[in-house]
Design a protein around this nucleic acid. Structure first.
Lengths: 207, 207
DNA sequence: GTCTATATCTGGATAGAC
DNA sequence: GTCTATCCAGATATAGAC
Protein backbone atom coordinates (compact mmCIF):
# COMPACT_ATOMS: atom_id res chain seq x y z
CA UNK A 1 0.00 0.00 0.00
CA UNK A 2 1.01 3.58 -0.72
CA UNK A 3 3.92 4.84 -2.71
CA UNK A 4 7.48 3.78 -2.06
CA UNK A 5 10.44 5.66 -3.49
CA UNK A 6 12.65 3.12 -5.24
CA UNK A 7 14.49 1.75 -2.23
CA UNK A 8 16.21 4.76 -0.74
CA UNK A 9 14.61 4.93 2.68
CA UNK A 10 10.96 4.28 2.04
CA UNK A 11 10.17 7.98 1.96
CA UNK A 12 6.45 8.07 1.32
CA UNK A 13 4.96 11.13 -0.25
CA UNK A 14 1.61 12.75 -0.63
CA UNK A 15 -1.30 12.55 1.73
CA UNK A 16 -0.56 9.13 3.13
CA UNK A 17 3.10 9.90 3.59
CA UNK A 18 2.18 12.92 5.68
CA UNK A 19 -0.25 10.88 7.79
CA UNK A 20 2.25 8.10 8.39
CA UNK A 21 4.98 10.51 9.35
CA UNK A 22 2.65 12.47 11.59
CA UNK A 23 1.29 9.39 13.35
CA UNK A 24 4.79 8.22 14.17
CA UNK A 25 5.81 11.61 15.50
CA UNK A 26 2.63 12.15 17.50
CA UNK A 27 3.12 8.76 19.08
CA UNK A 28 6.67 9.60 20.06
CA UNK A 29 6.34 13.21 21.17
CA UNK A 30 2.69 13.93 21.87
CA UNK A 31 0.38 16.39 20.22
CA UNK A 32 1.98 19.61 21.35
CA UNK A 33 5.47 18.24 20.88
CA UNK A 34 5.22 17.88 17.13
CA UNK A 35 5.55 20.78 14.71
CA UNK A 36 4.37 20.87 11.13
CA UNK A 37 7.98 21.45 10.18
CA UNK A 38 8.91 18.15 11.81
CA UNK A 39 6.08 16.32 10.08
CA UNK A 40 7.06 17.83 6.76
CA UNK A 41 10.69 16.86 7.19
CA UNK A 42 9.79 13.29 8.09
CA UNK A 43 7.51 13.14 5.06
CA UNK A 44 10.24 14.52 2.82
CA UNK A 45 8.56 17.81 1.97
CA UNK A 46 8.50 21.39 3.24
CA UNK A 47 6.15 22.69 5.90
CA UNK A 48 4.12 24.93 3.62
CA UNK A 49 3.30 22.01 1.33
CA UNK A 50 1.28 20.31 4.02
CA UNK A 51 -1.48 22.87 3.57
CA UNK A 52 -2.18 21.58 0.11
CA UNK A 53 -3.38 18.32 1.68
CA UNK A 54 -4.70 19.42 5.07
CA UNK A 55 -6.25 22.67 6.25
CA UNK A 56 -4.67 22.54 9.71
CA UNK A 57 -2.72 20.52 12.22
CA UNK A 58 -5.98 19.57 13.89
CA UNK A 59 -7.29 18.05 10.67
CA UNK A 60 -4.25 15.76 10.55
CA UNK A 61 -4.58 14.53 14.09
CA UNK A 62 -8.32 14.03 13.70
CA UNK A 63 -7.77 11.69 10.80
CA UNK A 64 -5.07 9.79 12.66
CA UNK A 65 -7.18 9.34 15.77
CA UNK A 66 -10.10 8.03 13.77
CA UNK A 67 -7.95 5.59 11.83
CA UNK A 68 -6.54 4.20 15.06
CA UNK A 69 -9.97 3.15 16.30
CA UNK A 70 -11.38 2.05 12.96
CA UNK A 71 -8.57 -0.36 12.21
CA UNK A 72 -8.95 -2.08 15.58
CA UNK A 73 -12.73 -2.22 15.38
CA UNK A 74 -12.69 -3.67 11.87
CA UNK A 75 -10.11 -6.32 12.65
CA UNK A 76 -11.82 -7.41 15.87
CA UNK A 77 -15.13 -7.70 14.06
CA UNK A 78 -13.55 -9.59 11.15
CA UNK A 79 -11.96 -12.11 13.48
CA UNK A 80 -15.24 -12.73 15.27
CA UNK A 81 -17.19 -13.09 12.06
CA UNK A 82 -14.64 -15.54 10.69
CA UNK A 83 -15.45 -18.02 13.45
CA UNK A 84 -16.98 -21.29 12.30
CA UNK A 85 -20.64 -21.86 13.09
CA UNK A 86 -21.07 -23.44 16.48
CA UNK A 87 -17.80 -22.14 17.86
CA UNK A 88 -17.61 -22.35 21.65
CA UNK A 89 -18.51 -19.26 23.63
CA UNK A 90 -15.03 -18.46 24.80
CA UNK A 91 -13.83 -18.50 21.18
CA UNK A 92 -15.72 -15.24 20.65
CA UNK A 93 -13.72 -13.44 23.29
CA UNK A 94 -10.50 -14.98 22.03
CA UNK A 95 -11.26 -13.87 18.47
CA UNK A 96 -12.13 -10.29 19.41
CA UNK A 97 -9.07 -10.07 21.61
CA UNK A 98 -6.83 -11.42 18.84
CA UNK A 99 -8.23 -8.99 16.29
CA UNK A 100 -7.88 -6.04 18.64
CA UNK A 101 -4.30 -6.90 19.47
CA UNK A 102 -3.31 -7.65 15.90
CA UNK A 103 -4.59 -4.36 14.51
CA UNK A 104 -3.34 -2.47 17.54
CA UNK A 105 0.22 -3.63 17.12
CA UNK A 106 0.38 -3.76 13.34
CA UNK A 107 -0.78 -0.17 12.97
CA UNK A 108 1.11 0.87 16.06
CA UNK A 109 1.73 4.48 15.12
CA UNK A 110 -1.95 5.20 14.57
CA UNK A 111 -3.28 3.23 17.49
CA UNK A 112 -0.58 4.37 19.86
CA UNK A 113 -1.10 7.98 18.86
CA UNK A 114 -4.77 7.48 19.70
CA UNK A 115 -4.15 5.83 23.06
CA UNK A 116 -1.49 8.28 24.11
CA UNK A 117 -2.84 11.62 23.02
CA UNK A 118 -6.62 11.26 22.87
CA UNK A 119 -6.77 12.90 26.26
CA UNK A 120 -4.48 15.74 25.20
CA UNK A 121 -5.88 17.09 21.97
CA UNK A 122 -8.15 20.14 21.73
CA UNK A 123 -11.72 19.43 22.76
CA UNK A 124 -13.06 19.78 19.24
CA UNK A 125 -10.71 17.08 17.99
CA UNK A 126 -11.53 14.78 20.87
CA UNK A 127 -15.26 15.15 20.33
CA UNK A 128 -14.88 14.24 16.69
CA UNK A 129 -13.28 10.95 17.69
CA UNK A 130 -15.72 10.11 20.46
CA UNK A 131 -18.56 8.63 18.42
CA UNK A 132 -16.17 6.27 16.66
CA UNK A 133 -14.87 5.18 20.04
CA UNK A 134 -18.34 4.63 21.38
CA UNK A 135 -19.24 2.44 18.42
CA UNK A 136 -16.40 0.08 19.19
CA UNK A 137 -17.14 0.03 22.90
CA UNK A 138 -20.73 -0.86 22.17
CA UNK A 139 -19.65 -3.62 19.84
CA UNK A 140 -17.55 -5.19 22.58
CA UNK A 141 -20.19 -4.69 25.25
CA UNK A 142 -22.80 -6.40 23.08
CA UNK A 143 -20.48 -9.29 22.36
CA UNK A 144 -19.65 -9.76 26.03
CA UNK A 145 -23.27 -9.36 27.10
CA UNK A 146 -24.27 -12.14 24.73
CA UNK A 147 -21.66 -14.42 26.22
CA UNK A 148 -22.99 -13.61 29.66
CA UNK A 149 -26.58 -14.23 28.60
CA UNK A 150 -25.47 -17.62 27.32
CA UNK A 151 -24.05 -18.40 30.72
CA UNK A 152 -20.44 -18.53 29.60
CA UNK A 153 -19.43 -15.45 31.58
CA UNK A 154 -20.32 -15.38 35.26
CA UNK A 155 -23.44 -13.41 36.08
CA UNK A 156 -21.63 -11.28 38.66
CA UNK A 157 -19.17 -9.88 36.12
CA UNK A 158 -19.87 -6.23 35.34
CA UNK A 159 -19.58 -6.18 31.56
CA UNK A 160 -18.68 -2.58 30.89
CA UNK A 161 -16.18 -2.60 33.71
CA UNK A 162 -14.57 -5.76 32.39
CA UNK A 163 -14.45 -4.17 28.95
CA UNK A 164 -12.55 -1.25 30.43
CA UNK A 165 -10.14 -3.64 32.14
CA UNK A 166 -9.68 -5.61 28.92
CA UNK A 167 -9.07 -2.65 26.62
CA UNK A 168 -6.77 -1.06 29.17
CA UNK A 169 -4.62 -4.17 29.42
CA UNK A 170 -4.54 -4.71 25.65
CA UNK A 171 -3.74 -1.11 24.75
CA UNK A 172 -0.91 -1.06 27.25
CA UNK A 173 0.94 -3.67 25.19
CA UNK A 174 1.78 -0.83 22.81
CA UNK A 175 4.23 0.42 25.39
CA UNK A 176 6.37 -2.68 25.49
CA UNK A 177 5.50 -5.14 22.71
CA UNK A 178 8.48 -6.16 20.62
CA UNK A 179 7.54 -8.29 17.59
CA UNK A 180 11.04 -9.75 17.49
CA UNK A 181 10.41 -11.44 20.82
CA UNK A 182 7.30 -13.51 20.26
CA UNK A 183 4.35 -13.01 17.98
CA UNK A 184 1.04 -11.29 18.42
CA UNK A 185 -0.98 -14.50 18.23
CA UNK A 186 0.86 -16.11 21.11
CA UNK A 187 0.44 -12.97 23.17
CA UNK A 188 -3.28 -12.89 22.42
CA UNK A 189 -3.72 -16.49 23.52
CA UNK A 190 -1.75 -15.89 26.68
CA UNK A 191 -3.78 -12.84 27.62
CA UNK A 192 -7.04 -14.64 26.83
CA UNK A 193 -6.04 -17.47 29.16
CA UNK A 194 -5.57 -15.01 32.00
CA UNK A 195 -8.83 -13.19 31.43
CA UNK A 196 -10.84 -16.37 31.05
CA UNK A 197 -9.35 -18.47 33.84
CA UNK A 198 -7.39 -16.17 36.09
CA UNK A 199 -3.98 -16.96 37.50
CA UNK A 200 -4.81 -19.01 40.57
CA UNK A 201 -3.80 -22.64 40.70
CA UNK A 202 -7.05 -23.77 42.26
CA UNK A 203 -10.41 -22.20 41.52
CA UNK A 204 -12.71 -24.27 43.63
CA UNK A 205 -15.22 -22.01 45.32
CA UNK A 206 -14.92 -18.27 44.78
CA UNK A 207 -15.79 -16.07 47.73
CA UNK B 1 0.32 19.37 53.56
CA UNK B 2 1.28 22.43 51.54
CA UNK B 3 0.04 25.93 51.87
CA UNK B 4 -3.56 26.91 51.34
CA UNK B 5 -4.65 30.49 50.83
CA UNK B 6 -7.43 31.16 53.31
CA UNK B 7 -10.31 29.71 51.30
CA UNK B 8 -10.35 31.70 48.09
CA UNK B 9 -9.69 28.99 45.52
CA UNK B 10 -6.93 26.94 47.10
CA UNK B 11 -4.30 28.76 45.10
CA UNK B 12 -1.16 27.07 46.29
CA UNK B 13 2.08 28.94 46.04
CA UNK B 14 5.74 28.19 46.06
CA UNK B 15 7.43 25.04 44.90
CA UNK B 16 4.59 22.66 45.60
CA UNK B 17 2.02 24.94 44.04
CA UNK B 18 4.06 24.97 40.85
CA UNK B 19 4.39 21.19 40.85
CA UNK B 20 0.69 20.62 41.45
CA UNK B 21 -0.31 23.06 38.73
CA UNK B 22 2.21 21.59 36.32
CA UNK B 23 1.16 18.00 36.99
CA UNK B 24 -2.45 18.83 36.29
CA UNK B 25 -1.61 20.63 33.06
CA UNK B 26 0.82 17.99 31.83
CA UNK B 27 -1.82 15.35 32.43
CA UNK B 28 -4.38 17.32 30.44
CA UNK B 29 -2.28 18.61 27.56
CA UNK B 30 0.87 16.57 27.33
CA UNK B 31 4.46 17.63 27.73
CA UNK B 32 4.79 19.78 24.64
CA UNK B 33 1.33 21.23 25.08
CA UNK B 34 2.12 23.03 28.30
CA UNK B 35 4.05 26.30 28.47
CA UNK B 36 5.81 27.69 31.49
CA UNK B 37 3.53 30.68 31.17
CA UNK B 38 0.52 28.41 31.55
CA UNK B 39 2.03 26.69 34.58
CA UNK B 40 2.82 30.03 36.15
CA UNK B 41 -0.70 31.31 35.61
CA UNK B 42 -2.24 28.18 37.13
CA UNK B 43 0.10 28.53 40.09
CA UNK B 44 -0.79 32.18 40.52
CA UNK B 45 2.61 33.63 39.66
CA UNK B 46 4.46 34.94 36.61
CA UNK B 47 6.53 32.83 34.27
CA UNK B 48 9.88 34.28 35.23
CA UNK B 49 9.31 33.41 38.87
CA UNK B 50 9.39 29.72 38.13
CA UNK B 51 13.13 29.88 37.60
CA UNK B 52 13.65 30.73 41.22
CA UNK B 53 12.40 27.23 42.07
CA UNK B 54 13.40 25.18 39.04
CA UNK B 55 16.25 25.50 36.57
CA UNK B 56 14.20 24.35 33.57
CA UNK B 57 10.98 22.86 32.32
CA UNK B 58 12.67 19.48 32.21
CA UNK B 59 13.49 19.70 35.91
CA UNK B 60 9.80 20.16 36.69
CA UNK B 61 8.62 17.23 34.65
CA UNK B 62 11.38 15.03 36.03
CA UNK B 63 10.21 15.62 39.56
CA UNK B 64 6.58 14.99 38.61
CA UNK B 65 7.39 11.73 36.84
CA UNK B 66 9.37 10.46 39.79
CA UNK B 67 6.67 11.35 42.30
CA UNK B 68 4.09 9.48 40.23
CA UNK B 69 5.98 6.20 40.57
CA UNK B 70 7.16 6.67 44.12
CA UNK B 71 3.70 7.28 45.54
CA UNK B 72 2.35 4.11 43.93
CA UNK B 73 5.33 2.01 44.94
CA UNK B 74 5.19 3.18 48.54
CA UNK B 75 1.47 2.61 48.93
CA UNK B 76 1.56 -0.83 47.35
CA UNK B 77 4.40 -1.85 49.62
CA UNK B 78 2.67 -0.41 52.69
CA UNK B 79 -0.51 -2.34 51.95
CA UNK B 80 1.38 -5.60 51.57
CA UNK B 81 3.41 -5.07 54.73
CA UNK B 82 0.26 -4.28 56.68
CA UNK B 83 -1.06 -7.78 56.08
CA UNK B 84 -1.46 -9.92 59.18
CA UNK B 85 0.97 -12.78 59.63
CA UNK B 86 -0.28 -15.91 57.93
CA UNK B 87 -2.43 -14.09 55.42
CA UNK B 88 -3.48 -16.28 52.49
CA UNK B 89 -1.42 -16.10 49.33
CA UNK B 90 -3.98 -14.30 47.25
CA UNK B 91 -4.22 -11.58 49.90
CA UNK B 92 -0.76 -10.43 48.84
CA UNK B 93 -1.87 -9.74 45.31
CA UNK B 94 -5.04 -8.10 46.53
CA UNK B 95 -3.08 -5.84 48.86
CA UNK B 96 -0.56 -4.75 46.24
CA UNK B 97 -3.33 -4.12 43.77
CA UNK B 98 -5.31 -2.08 46.26
CA UNK B 99 -2.29 0.03 47.17
CA UNK B 100 -1.38 0.62 43.56
CA UNK B 101 -4.88 1.68 42.65
CA UNK B 102 -5.38 3.82 45.71
CA UNK B 103 -2.21 5.87 45.19
CA UNK B 104 -2.74 5.94 41.44
CA UNK B 105 -6.16 7.52 41.71
CA UNK B 106 -5.58 9.69 44.75
CA UNK B 107 -2.54 11.37 43.21
CA UNK B 108 -4.11 11.30 39.77
CA UNK B 109 -2.35 14.32 38.32
CA UNK B 110 1.10 12.97 39.10
CA UNK B 111 0.45 9.37 38.19
CA UNK B 112 -1.55 10.22 35.11
CA UNK B 113 1.13 12.62 33.93
CA UNK B 114 3.58 9.77 34.31
CA UNK B 115 1.47 7.21 32.47
CA UNK B 116 0.54 9.57 29.68
CA UNK B 117 3.73 11.39 28.91
CA UNK B 118 6.56 9.12 30.02
CA UNK B 119 6.91 8.05 26.40
CA UNK B 120 6.92 11.63 25.14
CA UNK B 121 9.48 13.46 27.23
CA UNK B 122 13.06 14.11 26.14
CA UNK B 123 15.29 11.07 26.44
CA UNK B 124 17.28 12.53 29.32
CA UNK B 125 14.14 13.00 31.38
CA UNK B 126 12.89 9.53 30.58
CA UNK B 127 16.18 7.95 31.57
CA UNK B 128 16.11 9.72 34.90
CA UNK B 129 12.74 8.12 35.67
CA UNK B 130 13.66 4.66 34.45
CA UNK B 131 15.50 3.34 37.49
CA UNK B 132 12.62 4.31 39.76
CA UNK B 133 10.27 2.48 37.44
CA UNK B 134 12.45 -0.59 37.41
CA UNK B 135 12.54 -0.69 41.18
CA UNK B 136 8.78 -0.92 41.36
CA UNK B 137 8.57 -3.50 38.59
CA UNK B 138 11.10 -5.63 40.41
CA UNK B 139 9.14 -5.33 43.62
CA UNK B 140 6.01 -6.63 41.92
CA UNK B 141 7.85 -9.36 40.07
CA UNK B 142 9.40 -10.60 43.28
CA UNK B 143 6.07 -10.59 45.05
CA UNK B 144 4.39 -12.51 42.24
CA UNK B 145 7.29 -14.93 41.91
CA UNK B 146 7.00 -15.78 45.58
CA UNK B 147 3.31 -16.51 45.17
CA UNK B 148 4.13 -18.74 42.24
CA UNK B 149 6.86 -20.54 44.16
CA UNK B 150 4.30 -21.17 46.91
CA UNK B 151 2.03 -22.79 44.37
CA UNK B 152 -0.69 -20.16 44.59
CA UNK B 153 -0.15 -18.92 41.05
CA UNK B 154 -0.14 -21.50 38.29
CA UNK B 155 3.29 -22.57 37.13
CA UNK B 156 2.52 -21.76 33.49
CA UNK B 157 1.88 -18.09 34.21
CA UNK B 158 4.67 -15.88 32.87
CA UNK B 159 5.23 -13.52 35.78
CA UNK B 160 6.70 -10.50 34.07
CA UNK B 161 4.10 -10.71 31.32
CA UNK B 162 1.31 -10.90 33.86
CA UNK B 163 2.82 -7.92 35.65
CA UNK B 164 2.66 -5.96 32.40
CA UNK B 165 -0.97 -6.97 31.94
CA UNK B 166 -1.78 -6.04 35.50
CA UNK B 167 -0.12 -2.63 35.52
CA UNK B 168 -1.59 -1.85 32.12
CA UNK B 169 -5.12 -2.60 33.25
CA UNK B 170 -4.71 -0.72 36.54
CA UNK B 171 -3.13 2.37 35.04
CA UNK B 172 -5.87 2.58 32.44
CA UNK B 173 -8.40 3.25 35.20
CA UNK B 174 -6.98 6.79 35.27
CA UNK B 175 -8.76 7.44 32.01
CA UNK B 176 -12.26 6.76 33.28
CA UNK B 177 -12.36 6.40 37.05
CA UNK B 178 -14.91 8.68 38.71
CA UNK B 179 -14.77 8.63 42.52
CA UNK B 180 -18.37 9.80 42.72
CA UNK B 181 -19.49 6.54 41.17
CA UNK B 182 -18.06 3.87 43.43
CA UNK B 183 -14.96 3.81 45.56
CA UNK B 184 -11.43 2.69 44.92
CA UNK B 185 -11.59 -0.23 47.32
CA UNK B 186 -14.57 -1.80 45.58
CA UNK B 187 -12.88 -1.36 42.23
CA UNK B 188 -9.70 -2.98 43.55
CA UNK B 189 -11.62 -6.00 44.83
CA UNK B 190 -13.49 -6.35 41.58
CA UNK B 191 -10.33 -6.23 39.50
CA UNK B 192 -8.61 -8.68 41.82
CA UNK B 193 -11.48 -11.15 41.39
CA UNK B 194 -11.04 -11.02 37.64
CA UNK B 195 -7.28 -11.48 37.70
CA UNK B 196 -7.42 -14.28 40.23
CA UNK B 197 -10.37 -16.28 38.93
CA UNK B 198 -11.09 -15.09 35.41
CA UNK B 199 -14.53 -14.42 34.05
CA UNK B 200 -15.67 -17.86 32.95
CA UNK B 201 -18.56 -19.53 34.74
CA UNK B 202 -16.89 -22.92 34.79
CA UNK B 203 -13.18 -23.44 35.20
CA UNK B 204 -12.94 -27.19 35.20
CA UNK B 205 -9.93 -28.23 33.18
CA UNK B 206 -7.91 -25.52 31.46
CA UNK B 207 -6.55 -26.43 28.09
C1' DG C 1 1.87 19.49 -5.81
C1' DT C 2 5.74 21.53 -3.90
C1' DC C 3 8.53 25.44 -3.27
C1' DT C 4 10.23 30.10 -0.94
C1' DA C 5 9.27 33.86 1.76
C1' DT C 6 7.08 35.98 5.28
C1' DA C 7 3.55 37.65 8.74
C1' DT C 8 2.33 37.01 13.36
C1' DC C 9 2.56 34.91 17.59
C1' DT C 10 4.18 32.09 21.36
C1' DG C 11 7.85 29.25 23.36
C1' DG C 12 11.93 28.69 27.05
C1' DA C 13 15.14 31.16 29.27
C1' DT C 14 17.81 35.28 31.37
C1' DA C 15 18.80 39.86 33.76
C1' DG C 16 18.02 42.90 37.06
C1' DA C 17 14.64 45.80 39.82
C1' DC C 18 12.11 45.50 44.09
C1' DG D 1 10.53 35.20 46.22
C1' DT D 2 8.25 37.53 42.70
C1' DC D 3 8.10 41.01 39.33
C1' DT D 4 8.94 43.30 34.44
C1' DA D 5 11.27 43.39 30.33
C1' DT D 6 13.51 41.21 26.80
C1' DC D 7 16.27 37.94 23.64
C1' DC D 8 15.76 34.78 20.11
C1' DA D 9 14.34 30.47 18.45
C1' DG D 10 10.52 28.14 16.76
C1' DA D 11 5.39 27.77 16.05
C1' DT D 12 1.09 27.94 12.67
C1' DA D 13 -0.53 29.65 8.77
C1' DT D 14 -0.70 32.42 4.30
C1' DA D 15 0.66 34.15 -0.43
C1' DG D 16 2.31 33.57 -4.62
C1' DA D 17 6.09 31.70 -7.77
C1' DC D 18 7.09 27.57 -10.38
Amino acid sequence: MSVVKKSAEKVEVGREGILNAAASLFRQHGYGGVSLRAIAQAAGIKAGSIYYHFPSKDAIITEILDAGIVKVHEEARACVEALPAGAPAEAFLRAALRGHLRALLEHGDYTSANVRIFGQVPAAVRDANLSIRRDYEKYLDDLLSNLQADGAIRADVNISRFRLLLIGALNATLEWFDPSRGGVEALADDYADTFLNGILTQTGANK
